[in-house]
Design a protein around this nucleic acid. Structure first.
Length: 473
RNA sequence: GGUCCCAUCGUCUAGCGGCCCAGGACGCUGGCCUCUCACGCCGGAAACACGGGUUCGAUCCCCGUUGGGACCA
């Protein structure tokens, strides 16, 4: 059972590149946990690796979280702004004899490690500097934590259960480098303590770091938080998801035409479940989220299912919202000029006939091109098959009747087609397909009456006449 | 190599000893609908890694094997 005190969780990405799928899932679970328990979600930027950390990356992370609607209550805090705090804690340990200066150089360490390995001993730090009485001249020391050699450290993980580590296995880890920067394991502990984090929910890859962090908490005189280690997200080849598996950055999914709610829903169901339910609104997720229902096994990222969800959410979305997104895309791709101001109601009608067969916004954009562009590109195969000379009399007759149709609505257009079909004793496809090719350039589109209605009388007639002209030449 | 974790259809998962000759979803597939493509609807194939225990009874508990993964180096 959760304690009475307020739940405080955090997401602590390193700003060394894009915001990844795995990271987002961790952020999402933290966020859901916070919202579920009415707690606080804190954002912390772990930027102590200053050779790889960039401000652009921080911005990408913030933008990605905002896009997904993962709002944070405190932060973003940056570790580089907290150096005094780490120093203070290092001094505290040093003062209590729980840490010591180490003057060994990386080269010396490496040599001794190889030696140990060669002699069949475990490659653990030999505590050479532990009993040093005076500083080694000309060298700037790092600081090592004096870890316990005996007993065990038990991680009571909310997902894994009790995981036992022999303390003997853990060596005296460096907590502060000679350049004065704290190491990951130390900074994390100090940050989580000072930020009063109650639940550390993070990737499985940190499970092995946890016992040494627990020792650090204890040495510092603090109660460790609760831990929950989430299983990894894998690529199709069952190795940790990475760039070589294709799109892994949140921004890529945005650019590919995914809706944030689709990604959120998909990621929530990756490693977590609630009975047989597949579709979850954000509120349902908040209401139902529980660490108990997080699985232990790693899960393979399945783009197919994400696509299905995206399709689903496109159907659910407000046409007005989709119209805005579509317009943005059309402008971005230069299909319509940036200064164009198409009628929004018309855009909504266009969206409505397109959603059903759009799995992504990009697909929708492509289907929208014939409606918004001046000219169309006619697919050669489609032209050869459907824009034939025996279609000409039908097309001519159709144009004539379309011109007379009023109002120019789905119902009236349908009447025109039905009339033609009945009089000529033909199948609808005989006339619908040539018209489809004439209007859209291809053989695939929404229902032909809808296409004609949304395209409008002028454009429809112009395109059919153009097609007739080309057949006759 | 050492340490730790994990193991149900191809994939995400339900299952927390009998309701399971294992349910849902994606994908795949047969059919219906149909002006194209979709959507939708109906149907199908598809899994408890293996071997020991425990138990009246194991997908579910324990041990081992195998296989995967992570971390450390």
């Amino acid at each position: 059972m959760l304690s009475m005190s307020e739940v405080r969780v955090r997401f602590a990405p390193s700003p060394t590149g894009a915001l990844h799928i795995g990271g987002v899932r961790t952020a999402l679970f933290n966020w859901l946990f916070a919202r579920r328990h009415g707690g606080k979600f804190i954002l912390r930027i772990e930027d102590t690796d200053r050779t790889r950390s960039t401000d652009e990356s921080i911005q990408i992370i913030l933008d990605g979280m905002k896009w997904l609607g993962l709002d944070w209550d405190e932060g973003p805090f940056r570790q580089t702004e907290r150096m005094a705090i780490y120093r203070e804690h290092v001094d505290k340990l040093l003062g209590q004899g729980k840490a010591y200066y180490c003057y060994c150089t990386p080269e010396e360490l490496e040599a001794r490690r190889k030696e140990a390995l060669a002699a069949g001993r475990p490659p653990k730090y030999d505590r050479k500097c532990r009993l040093l009485k005076a500083p080694v001249p000309g060298r700037t020391p790092a600081v090592r934590f004096l870890s316990s050699d005996e007993g065990q450290t038990i991680v009571r993980d909310l997902i894994r259960g009790a995981v036992t580590f022999e303390n003997q296995q853990l060596d005296d880890l460096i907590i502060m480098r000679s350049d004065g920067f704290p190491t990951y394991n130390f900074a994390v502990v100090v940050d989580d303590v000072t930020m009063k984090i109650t639940h550390v929910i993070r990737g499985d890859d940190h499970l092995n770091n946890t016992p040494r962090q627990i020792q650090l908490y204890q040495a510092l005189g603090y109660e460790p938080p609760e831990f929950a280690h989430l299983p990894m997200i894998l690529g199709p080849d069952k190795t940790k998801l990475s760039k070589r598996h294709g799109a892994t950055a949140v921004t890529e999914y945005k650019d590919l035409g995914y809706l944030p709610e689709a990604l959120v829903n998909y990621l929530a169901r990756l490693g977590w479940s609630s009975g047989d339910q597949e579709i979850f609104s954000k509120q349902e997720l908040i209401d139902k989220f529980s660490l108990e229902n997080v699985g232990k096994a790693p899960s393979v990222f399945n783009p197919e299912k994400l696509l299905w969800l995206n399709h689903h959410y496109i159907q659910q979305a407000e046409p007005g919202r989709l119209a805005d997104l579509l317009l943005e895309l059309l402008k971005k791709d230069g299909i319509i000029p940036a200064e164009a101001r198409p009628d929004r109601e018309w855009m909504k009608r266009l969206v409505c006939i397109l959603t059903e067969r759009s799995h992504t916004l990009v697909e929708m954009k492509n289907s929208a091109i014939p409606f918004v562009a001046e000219d169309i590109h006619v697919d050669e195969k489609a032209r050869a098959k459907h824009l034939t000379s025996d279609a000409v009399p039908l097309l001519l007759l159709l144009v004539e009747r379309l011109k007379a149709a009023k109002p120019f609505t789905h119902a009236e257009i349908e009447k025109v087609f039905n009339g033609l079909v009945a009089e000529k004793g033909i199948k609808l496809g005989k006339i619908a397909q040539p018209v489809r090719v004439a209007l859209t350039g291809g053989t695939v589109s929404p229902g032909i009456y809808e296409v004609i209605e949304v395209m409008g009388k002028d454009k429809t007639i112009k395109r059919i006449e153009t097609a007739i002209g080309k057949i006759q030449n």
